[in-house]
Simulated assay, not measured.
Amino acid sequence: MNKKDVLKLIYTKLFSALGPSHWWPGESPFEIAVGAILTQNTNWNNVEKAIHNLKQANLLNEQKLFSLPEEKLAFYIKPAGFFRLKTKRLKNFLHFLKKEANLKITNLKIYPLKELREKLLSVSGIGPETADSILLYALDKPIFVVDVYTKRMFSRHGLVPEETSYQEIQDLFMDNLDPNVQLFNEYHALIVRACKKWCLKNKPRCEECPLNNI
């Protein structure tokens, strides 16, 4: 079986077992982008608390966060951890939005994928996973998001070496699947859910996993 067929089979089995994921949690493209930045080095429950704080204060839009002093922003996002660092990263992103999109994140959609990805990666504090999450989930650009779960699952199934780069893993998906936003969205979400349920870092539950015979 070639890699394309294996990738399709994995998707089919995961979707059959888990059903649709309805990702990414967020009520607007900007909220999704903020969540992608805040989720670095923390779990989603903490991000939800930080986003809740911003919503309660009616601050979760580009213009209001851009104008908010750093110390106040840091206070609201404190539950997300590393809040001073993340405040700077959010502010860097907001200055980028001011320059490139007149503080309207959806204005970024006019850029071609490759060019926009390069622009996002030039923002201090935004790495490949964060950039690709913003591109896919907030801006509907067809790019596959890679994370530790992707590397874990696909190295265990022998599709990528244990020591491999973000780009190499991403290429596996981009080279073998059609560039489809909905497919990439659902596939990444299913990988995360499956790793949290079966493909655990320690003591994986392989016998329970729908991929155990692949």
Rank of each mutant, 00 (worst) to 15 (best):
Y11I: 03
K8R: 14
S122Y: 03
M153Q: 12
R89P: 06
K201P: 08
E186D: 05
I110N: 10
P204V: 05
I126F: 04
I105D: 10
L116A: 02
K201Q: 13
N45P: 00
T39R: 00
V6R: 14
K72I: 09
Y187W: 03
R193V: 10
S16I: 06
Y11E: 05
N43L: 02
P204F: 04
K196M: 07
Y11D: 02
P128A: 14
K151M: 14
K4N: 13
L183N: 05
R84S: 13
K197P: 00
Q40C: 04
K49M: 15
F154R: 06
K114H: 08
I134E: 09
Y76M: 06
L183G: 08
V6P: 00
T12V: 00
G127Y: 01
G158C: 11
T150W: 08
A17L: 01
K13N: 08
E27F: 03
K109W: 03
K201A: 12
I169N: 02
N102D: 15
L200Q: 12
E115V: 12
S165A: 05
E27V: 00
G158L: 09
E168L: 07
I169S: 02
P112M: 09
K8M: 09
L38E: 05
Y187V: 03
S122C: 02
L94M: 10
G158N: 10
S21I: 01
S16E: 14
Y11W: 00
R89F: 08
S28K: 13
A194E: 13
K141D: 02
L18R: 07
V34W: 00
G127A: 13
N58L: 09
L103F: 01
V34R: 01
V34G: 02
I77F: 04
E100Y: 07
N202F: 10
A57V: 09
G19R: 00
D140A: 15
T42F: 11
D5W: 02
R84K: 15
K99Y: 01
H157C: 09
G81V: 09
A36D: 10
P20H: 07
F173K: 07
V123M: 04
R117S: 04
R89E: 02
Q63P: 02
I37Y: 02
E115A: 06
N176P: 09
E118M: 07
N61W: 03
W23D: 11
N213H: 14
L190P: 12
E70G: 12
Y11F: 15
S124E: 14
W44Y: 10
P161Y: 02
G35M: 01
A138W: 01
H95K: 13
E208D: 15
F144Q: 12
E208C: 08
Q56S: 15
L9W: 00
L139G: 13
P29Q: 03
T42V: 07
K78P: 03
D147G: 11
I214Q: 10
L211H: 01
N92Y: 06
I32Q: 06
P20D: 11
M174E: 14
I191L: 09
E207C: 03
L120Y: 08
L113K: 11
K201R: 12
K119A: 01
V148Y: 11
E208L: 15
E31M: 05
K72R: 15
G19S: 04
